[in-house]
Design a protein around this nucleic acid. Structure first.
Lengths: 114, 114
DNA sequence: TTACTATAATACCATATAGTAATATTATCA
DNA sequence: TGATAATATTACTATATGGTATTATAGTAA
């Protein structure tokens, strides 16, 4: 039997799912330097307006960003910088993989003749 | 302009995508205590054989688990325990959210009359 | 060889979702 | 009030993928 309840695992999976889309990561990256309104996010990411709006809703519902209406425009900002720790960890993993691939290629040096 | 190249972000998104499925997290959890063969994983997770096989392939291609044939059976084990750090971080985030929701409910105590 | 077991691959269906065009909403200003 | 700008929502299409039944492959033993 699994010690971890399915419901908890499901929540973790759902969280990862939010972070598993390129467009949403682009939006988050554009917010890394601070709060921005939707228009600024659209400009910085190059994504469509309806698309950005949809992704911002998903990010908001996940509790990753916070919505702050301000006059005509709406500002969004990251609520929990944990995302960047997550990305950092993943990048470390990817770097290690690249190093291993690189070393695997080096060990083929003897075949360089062709 | 975005400082982080799209290609790098895409790889990060792809990595999160691998972790964004309940079944795959179940498989990873079953491997947390050490290497297991496919039959054992099937028993522990309750997932279908073809399904587990498919998920193991995805996890292997992502470099998250390692495949080790041994006689008739094939053993899988986690190559990089970084996944559990990732899950730990996500759980922290989820806990914080629950605490905040809990406090929000407490602040409604005055309405308890009904 | 044949029979059996463990694992993988294939084909298919059903569902989820990213992107977008069009429309709706909301706030501000004249 | 009406006009305009910013944002959100809706409806739709196209694509991706999870699950599964089926078939294929590989290893082992008789």
């Amino acid at each position: 039997m699994s010690k971890i309840p399915i419901s908890a695992l499901t929540q973790v999976a759902d969280y990862f799912k939010v972070l598993s889309e390129l467009s949403r990561l682009q939006v988050l990256c554009s917010l890394k330097t601070g709060a921005k309104n939707v228009t600024e996010i659209i400009e910085e990411t190059g994504l469509g307006q309806a698309n950005v709006s949809k992704h911002l809703k998903i990010l908001t519902q996940a509790g990753i960003v916070k919505r702050q209406p301000q006059g005509v425009s709406v500002y969004y900002q990251i609520t929990d910088p944990i995302i960047f720790d997550l990305c950092e960890l993943v990048c470390q993993h990817l770097e290690i993989q690249l190093q291993e691939q690189s070393q695997a290629l080096k060990s083929l040096d003897g075949l360089r003749q062709l």
